[in-house]
Design a protein around this nucleic acid. Structure first.
Length: 491
RNA sequence: GUGGCUAUAGCUCAGUUGGUUAGAGCGCGAGGUUGUGAUCCUUGAGGUCGCGGGUUCGAGUCCCGUUAGCCACCCCA
């Protein structure tokens, strides 16, 4: 009920209408900062060979419910057409009956991956293999807002759909005679590494370093083998992954209770689950596995050690570490999974391999891997670490700095020449501004030129004479108008 | 969805055991000093004290509700 615009409330009808919970208004400086991040996203993705795509802001609700569980359904913002009276009436009846969740025919996109899967599936036959797509737009989730978490946010996705042809598979990683599922996954490890490398590149471009962040990765196919050997049957794998994912947050008693709740009773698995917490990296994990020899263990963990090597080759080995506790909540991940953790806690990005999803949406069996990153947590991190550039630097990076700020020297002749000169500069393709203040004081006007981060200030002295001041160098020359204006080149 | 804390100018915050017309700094507008981004001086605008109800002669202050924000859960595509 708190989500309603509360048209019945006296307060709402009297005061100004507030922005909806969990949404943001972007004033110029705030939008510039957001654009700066988006610019980093876009240029990074393009540099890594991804092409930008987009899809609808809202989709049929079934697109999301088909793939995901009840958790997602409850966080969907429903959308309906006011022209579809029958559907609206039906919705009203279900709502009145206490039915909640995604009962509207459409939903604001809570994520982009289903749209991407649908788009790929629709043209799978004509798209290159692999296809590399990126996307950066807003998403909506009806969660309770808190720090780092809103109801509308920008998200950046990079996905590689389709596998590497067998002949070009990573040397030293492939080798199986028949192409089993595991072989295909291992061949595509180069793509797993490429995805993680792209994510790390973005972080580096924002000034972040591996000293405060890490990429923690794991592999669900490896986990699946382990827990199968521990006596967990196939249908309980998803639940077991959930338990593994939350191992760090819950104590043994809670874990055990939750396991029973899920119907998992394997004592071997529970023992494995309750093993000492700590650095669950590759080397320590070797000792905890349900195997007879270290060779067998190494064999079992080969996808992880292989990926680690590929990541080192990609130049981001120092960022990446195996973490056997990472499983991710999503049901559709099939292989590699990873999260980018800041200061040991907050997740700023995450992703993994989903080799069944394209098929789920009507396409041919197609391996795929990708990740997502939101603007909310990333902004917080950059602010906290002092890495958000100054307003002037952002203006420069986004090419928002005025090239020229036109000032009259105060005579009526010069006053009349201000709009004339502005028009000329703009005709010449320059970003030119003036002041709208009533003051004629040169000092105040130069301050405005400075506040707007203008590159040059132009003081009109007469029809043919100006003073051109370089605001960055703090130098100026007075002379022929045409001669001095020629110095101003687009940034 | 659950619990705790908070709410005064655009921002950061004062505001006494409840007592006249609610304040400061910054920012914003105008002006001052021989026409240069600073400092300084003068001055102006801007608040139904989140909103609604209650107690009281009187509420920014006390009580209840509500909304929003923050924090911790839940969840995390």
């Amino acid at each position: 009920m708190t989500d309603q615009p509360s048209s019945s409330s006296d307060a709402a009808s009297r005061g100004p209408i507030q922005p909806a919970t969990g949404t943001r208004d972007f004033y110029p400086i705030e939008l510039a900062r957001r654009r700066w991040i988006e610019d980093k996203w876009r240029t990074t993705a393009i540099r890594h060979g991804f092409e930008e795509i987009d899809g609808p802001t809202f989709e049929p609700t079934d697109l999301y419910t088909r793939k995901s569980g009840d958790g997602i359904v409850s966080e969907i913002f429903g959308v309906y057409s006011g022209k579809d009276e029958a559907r609206v009436k039906q919705m009203g009846q279900r709502l009145a009956a206490g039915d909640t969740g995604a009962i509207a025919p459409y939903a604001l996109r809570p994520e982009f991956t289903p749209t991407l899967a649908r788009m790929f599936a629709a043209r799978a036959g004509q798209l290159p293999k692999p296809t590399k797509w990126f996307w950066q737009q807003n998403c909506y989730r009806a969660e309770k807002p808190q720090r780092g978490r809103l109801r509308e946010f920008m998200q950046w996705n990079c996905d590689i759909v389709g596998g590497v042809p067998r002949a070009e598979a990573a040397p030293g990683v492939s080798g199986g005679a028949s192409p089993s599922v595991v072989d295909i996954a291992q061949e595509n490890a180069t793509l797993d590494a490429e995805i993680i490398a792209c994510c790390v590149d973005l972080l580096q471009r924002c000034g972040l370093t591996s000293s405060s962040m890490s990429v923690r990765f794991n592999d669900r196919s490896v986990l699946g083998k382990i827990i199968t050997r521990l006596g967990v049957d196939r249908e309980h794998h998803a639940a077991a992954f959930t338990l593994i994912d939350r191992r760090g947050k819950l104590d043994d008693a809670d874990l055990e209770a939750m396991a029973f709740e899920f119907g998992i009773h394997s004592t071997e698995f529970l023992t494995f689950l309750k093993r000492p917490r700590g650095a669950d990296d590759l080397s320590t994990s070797l000792n905890e596995l349900p195997v007879d020899s270290r060779e067998e263990a190494a064999q079992m963990l080969a996808p992880l050690s292989g990926l680690k090597e590929l990541l080192a080759q990609a130049g981001c080995g120092d960022w990446c570490v195996v973490d056997m506790n990472i499983a991710r909540g999503l049901a559709y991940y099939t292989g590699m999974v990873f999260e980018v953790i800041v200061d040991g806690e907050r997740a700023v990005a995450g992703g993994g391999r989903y080799d069944n999803l394209i098929e789920t949406f009507g396409g041919p069996p197609t391996p795929a891997v990708g990740f997502g990153m939101g603007d909310v947590v990333l902004s917080l991190i950059l602010q906290d670490k002092g890495l958000m550039p100054s307003d002037k630097q952002i203006a420069a990076d986004l090419k928002l700095r005025p090239d020229a700020f036109v000032i009259s020297n105060g005579t009526t002749e010069s006053d009349a020449l201000v709009p004339v000169l502005l028009a000329k500069l703009r005709r010449d393709g320059l970003h030119a501004r003036r002041s709208y203040k009533s003051t004629g004081k040169i000092g105040k006007l130069l301050k405005e030129a400075s506040d707007t981060h203008s590159r040059y200030a132009i003081i009109i002295e007469s029809e043919t004479e100006i003073t051109l001041k370089d605001m960055d160098a703090n130098t100026q020359d007075r002379g022929s108008r045409e001669e001095l204006l020629a110095r101003i080149k687009p940034a």
